[in-house]
Structure formats: structure tokens, C-alpha cells
Design a protein around this nucleic acid. Structure first.
Lengths: 238, 238
DNA sequence: TGGCCCAAAATTGTATACAAACAAGACCGG
DNA sequence: CCGGTCTTGTTTGTATACAATTTTGGGCCA
């Protein structure tokens, strides 16, 4: 973990991007989306505080926020751990995604204007660049975030917030339960989705999204696994 | 505000029901569901701390949790306020309910066993008793909570947590935007829903739920209003 | 070698002190 | 009287101190 990068995180916060706790929250979510932080990882308050250069007060606020999203589990008197979703929870998360993402997709296809199209295409370009550059972690994160960008395009804050949590939790689930080593979302699926959405072909986009989610879920083997644990200072702030 | 009642809240926490912050969070949600706490009400840390007999640390944790659910808005350097949902947010909340509650209802109808039926009937009995006794506040709260009990019966934690937030936010929305003074959910609708769910008639229950939600939403007039403000100590711990 | 016990170290839970920022009231001038 | 400025009081943001709990390591015994 390079101290310079975590200072960048803090500067972003000073930049009216939100409080320090929110910045740490975002950075930890980023680490999870990039699959650097795995299920069961202990997030000690002093350790996290040392990494980001803040007191435990700020760390506790960040951890509470993460716990509220189901991404971290806080056990009384024992500390905070990256969540280890059960098979049941995994099924529930994907079921919720199969419920909400077609609705988001349909909305996005209906309201998508030039700015929305530009945002989607820019995101797609970022995904492709990460893939081309062999930056697996960024590619994985961007592929998850693509879904959240759709919700932002749809302009529906309630759905967006819910989906943001579902996507972060999906990242943990995929890390635990996936069969293949491949990136879970295929860029060409995202490409086709973008084209359908931008063209306002809602029904087609919805069908594609449904298939896309089914495919992600089919790649999961919903049985229990164990994960190795790495030192926190290698994983955060990255 | 009777000190005895808030001590009861604290004892419930000591009873492995969760931390003190969680108990305060629950009590504030309860006050909102009972429409004792209206949109825009300031929740000062010291004031809330005095009411519940805790330090600001615990209050801040409770307020953060409420803010995460969209029930309270924390403005930097200005304090925490009960949320005042906009017309757009109101529409989004009800749209999300129209998406998720039929799914919950269908699930509940599929899995409802004898214990589930007993839970639903007990809840319904409580609603009817509150109505009969003229306890409007309890009746309003129980009618909102009925929807969350359905989610619990469905045994789907992701849906349940999401719906819990939506129902609390709905309470604020209804207080702000309703046309009529009547209780927003009619008990006979809940009665009919329970019978269909318990009998496993999923499609019928789903249709009823959809109509029920449409009816609630039709009773809202989605234009901006202002609300009078009452002293906090009259409203919390109730 | 494994299990148990105990003391010390580490960590979490929480209150409180201090700094920073905002709100309210007083004062002054036009 | 009204508006602007300044001062004071209040509240929020955050670190730190202290209490409570858990974890770890060492010693002892079968």
C-alpha cells in the first residue's frame, strides 16, 4: 500500500467530495470491487486508521456505513470483517438484481439522452482499455460499476443506491463462488446493451440484461468455500 | 416524554436486542412510523442524547444509521434533520415498492407455513385492536409494518431490509403528501391479503398487493408542502 | 503432544475534551 | 426602522482517554 495513494483519497475528500469517512468507505468498496479485499478479511480500527492517517472515530463511521450495506460485518467486541455471504444471501442478491436491473434498464432506455449515451460509451471505453491493458482488477471493478452507471442514467436514486449495494455484494459473492477465472461480465454484452439502450430499444435491452444476469449467476457454484487472508496494508488504499 | 419509556428502550438493548445506538435508531423509526416525528424536524445530538441518557457518540451512530436509510438527512456542520422527501423521491419510493412488494407477496404466498400464518394473523389482530381502540398512531405504524412482516414471512433478507427502508420513507411521504386524513392502509385489504397468502393463492395475492399500493399512491398529492415543527422531547421515546 | 489456566497485550465500546463552524443576538449607521 | 457587522453562544466534527472485552502467549500437567 502506497501512502501517497491514500493521501490522494484524503485530498479527494477535502475537495467537497464528502467527509473522510465517506472517502474511506468508497476506497474500501473499491478494494472489494477490484477483488483485492476478500471475504472474511479483518478490518481492525487501528490498522485502518494507520493506513489512512485518521483516528478511530472516522474509521468507525466508515465501517458502520459499510456494515449497513452488508459489505462488512461488525461483530460486537470482536471487530469488523469483510462480509462472507452465505449461499442463501448470494441467491437473494442475484434474485434482487434480476428484479431491479431489468426495471433500471427499461428506464435507462427510455430516458437516455446524448449526455447519458456519452457517459455510457465513456465507461465502456474505460472497460475496454482496462481489458486491453491487462489490468484485471480495474476491469473487474469497471464491469461491476457499469451496472451502477446504468442506474445513474436511469435517474432513479432509490434504485441506484440499492443497486450499488447489490453490486458490491455481488463482487464478494463472485469471488467466493465463481467457477471460472474469467472476468464475470463480458464487455461485448455491455457493448450490445449500450447500443440497445442508446437506441431506445427498451424491450430488447431488458431481455439482454436478463440474459446477462442469468449468465453471471450460472457461473456461480453456490457451495461454501474458504479464502486465504492477506495483510491489510497490501490491500487498501490501492 | 416519559423517562420511563426511554429506559425501557435501553433495557431492550441490554437484552441482546442490539446496541444502544440500534435501539435509538429503532425508536426514532417508530416515532416516524407513528407520524409523531415529521419531516424537517431537527434531531440535535445533545438533545437526543439527553432524551435517551447517552453520550453524543451513541447518538451519532444512530443518526448515521438513520441517514443511511434515507430517513434522516445529516447536513455538514448544521446537524441532522428528519428527511423531507421531494416529490421525485416520493415517486421513486412508490415505484420501488410497486416493483418489490409483488415479488415479496408471491414469495410469501409460496413459502407461508403455519408459523407464518400465525404471525400474519397476530399482526392483523394487533392492527384491528389499535383501530378499535382509536389508537391512531399505533394503527398507522402497524399498517406500515404489516408490509415488512410479509417480507419476513417471505424469508428474503435482502428484500426485507430494502422494504423496511421504503416503508419508513413512505411514512414521511404519506405525512407530507396525503390528501385524506384516513389511515393509509385499509385493514380489510390486509385481511384479504393474508387470506390469499395463507391459502397459497400467489397470483391473487400479487394482484391485491398491486392494487393496494396503487390505492395508497393515488391518495397522495405530489406537490410541495410545509410542516409545523414540535419540540423534540414531546415526540421521541414515546 | 494436547489441553487448560492465567496474565498480559491488544482491540473494541464509549465518554469527554478540544477545535471548528454555524446561528443568534447586540450594536451601529443610514 | 432596516440592514450590515461583530461578538457570543451553541452545536457539530474529531481525537483521545478510559473502561470493558477478547485474544494471545506462556507455563503447567496429564
Amino acid at each position: 500500500m502506497s501512502g501517497g495513494v491514500s493521501e490522494t483519497t484524503m485530498e479527494a475528500a477535502g475537495d467537497r467530495g464528502g467527509t473522510r469517512a465517506e472517502a474511506i468507505h468508497r476506497d474500501i468498496v473499491r478494494a472489494i470491487l477490484e477483488q483485492r479485499l476478500g471475504p472474511g478479511t479483518k478490518l481492525g480500527e487501528d490498522e485502518v486508521g494507520a493506513i489512512y492517517g485518521v483516528s478511530r472515530t472516522i474509521v468507525r463511521a466508515a465501517l458502520q456505513s459499510l456494515a449497513h450495506e452488508g459489505i462488512v460485518v461488525i461483530e460486537k467486541n470482536r471487530g469488523a470483517f469483510v462480509a462472507h455471504p452465505s449461499v442463501k444471501e448470494a441467491a437473494e442478491v442475484f434474485q434482487a438484481r434480476r428484479l431491479i436491473e431489468p426495471a433500471i434498464t427499461e428506464l435507462a432506455a427510455r430516458v437516455c439522452d446524448g449526455a447519458g449515451a456519452a457517459m455510457l460509451r465513456a465507461h465502456l471505453a474505460e472497460e475496454k482499455a482496462a481489458e486491453r491493458d491487462g489490468d484485471d482488477r480495474a476491469a473487474i471493478r469497471l464491469s461491476g460499476e457499469f451496472h451502477v452507471v446504468l442506474a445513474r442514467i436511469a435517474g432513479h436514486r432509490v434504485y441506484e443506491n440499492f443497486l450499488r449495494e447489490l453490486v458490491a455484494r455481488s463482487s464478494l459473492i463472485i469471488l467466493l463462488y465463481r467457477r471460472s477465472r474469467s472476468q464475470c461480465c463480458k464487455t461485448d454484452h455491455h457493448t450490445a446493451l449500450v447500443e440497445a439502450i442508446v437506441a431506445g430499444r427498451g424491450a430488447e435491452a431488458v431481455a439482454m440484461m436478463t440474459n446477462h444476469l442469468d449468465e453471471i449467476e450460472r457461473d456461480l457454484e453456490l457451495v461454501d468455500t474458504a479464502v486465504p487472508v492477506k495483510p491489510l496494508s497490501e490491500l487498501l488504499g490501492g
